[in-house]
């Protein structure tokens, strides 16, 4: 695309308020414009590099110095260079396949240095014809929290802060409001006269958290999974304020995961280790589900309260639930259209 025509498209888009609303990266239109932007950036690869260098001139000099100083140590200087390149890499959505492969290689090397064992980091893209959906049976859940535990291990959640994506609420029979629910019970379950309801990120079809992110560090993938680029997030926590379901978690400090229990089967947008000061959230176990596996919570649930599947497949279990059970979603009035339904037997 030439420069003048791209400016024209841009102006046209500006003049057409209808199109303005579709600048979103999550609908196909928007993706295209995003991809075009990416193509442009790619064309100007060199300029970008130069600009970066100019901006961080002093820093670059410093890094070069460090690199030179550490040169005899071999590995060290390579690590410094990797860290340097990591810092200046692009938003995941703007990367080409090669760039994605490069950053994965770097991350693998760096992680191997850090945690004594190389992870396998996938970049599996969304498959066409797939839109993930989830259903939760509130008559079945007994509050055992096996899902929570499985999630913590699968997704390398911060043990130091006791972070958990899934929360199970104990609600008194006859009540419906979460305000009267107990989200941190610890006693024998199921408690008499109570039922249990689990929450996590609902992967809204119209996710407000995505709209508000100033740097586009979080977005909805083609298969409906809302993801965060941990290396792109600047940690403003606007998305956390915008989420009506408490679906997002922030790394207030550097996350701690014992090296021996790190799950090394990872996805770039999924359970790879986070750092302090970035946002994270449930990804429907993207590292598993994009391979066809079930999310860890579904697999761990001893009561079969969790149903997961492809909404676009008329024969899927999730579609059976939607078609045959009485379902509801939380705060439907907000128009976020969560892809997470509750149902009863």
């Amino acid at each position: 695309m030439t420069k003048s025509s791209s400016i024209k498209t841009w102006v046209r888009r500006l003049l057409n308020p209808e199109a303005l609303r579709y600048l979103a990266a999550d609908d196909p239109e928007g993706d295209r414009s995003f991809a075009e932007g990416a193509a442009q950036v790619m064309d100007k690869q060199l300029d970008r590099r130069q600009a970066l260098k100019a901006i961080a001139g002093a820093g670059a000099a410093g890094a070069a110095l460090v690199q030179a100083a550490c040169a005899p140590l071999g590995g060290r200087s390579e690590e410094a260079q990797h860290r340097w390149e990591e810092f200046f890499k692009k938003n995941y959505r703007l990367m080409t396949e090669t760039e994605r492969a490069e950053t994965v290689t770097r991350l693998t090397k760096l992680a191997a240095d850090d945690r004594g064992g190389a992870p396998h980091i996938q970049t599996t893209p969304a498959q066409p014809g797939v839109l993930f959906g989830y259903a939760f049976n509130i008559s079945k859940c007994k509050g055992y929290q096996d899902c929570v535990k499985a999630c913590i291990h699968e997704n390398n959640l911060d043990r130091g802060e006791n972070m958990q994506y899934i929360r199970i609420f104990e609600i008194e029979n006859g009540q419906q409001s979460l305000a009267s629910a107990n989200g941190s019970y610890y006693h024998e379950v199921p408690a008499d006269g109570h039922y249990y309801l689990g929450t996590q990120c609902f992967h809204c079809e119209n996710p407000p958290c995505v709209d508000v992110c100033p740097v586009g560090a979080t977005w909805k993938e083609e298969d409906g999974i809302v993801v965060v680029d941990y290396d792109w997030c600047i940690g403003c926590r606007y998305c956390q304020a915008a989420c009506p379901y408490f679906g997002r978690r922030f790394n207030w400090s550097a996350p701690q995961v014992p090296p021996e229990s790190v799950n090394r089967e990872q996805h770039y947008l999924g359970n790879r280790p986070r750092k302090k000061g970035v946002m994270e959230k449930c990804t429907f176990c993207i590292q598993r589900t994009r391979q066809g596996k079930l999310p860890a919570c579904v697999e761990a649930c001893p009561t079969g309260a969790r149903v997961f599947g492809n909404l676009l497949d008329p024969n899927s279990e999730i579609r059976y639930v939607l078609a045959n059970k009485k379902v509801f979603r939380l705060k439907e009035e907000l128009g976020t259209e969560p892809k997470f339904w509750y149902f009863t037997d």
């Binding site: 055992y144 929290q145 535990k149 802060e161 958990q164 929360r167 989200g183 024998e188 379950v189």
Partner: peptide, 9 residues
């Protein structure tokens, strides 16, 4: 009936 395997903070 049994104890949950995780204690939420």
């Amino acid at each position: 009936k049994r104890w949950p395997v995780h204690a939420a903070r």
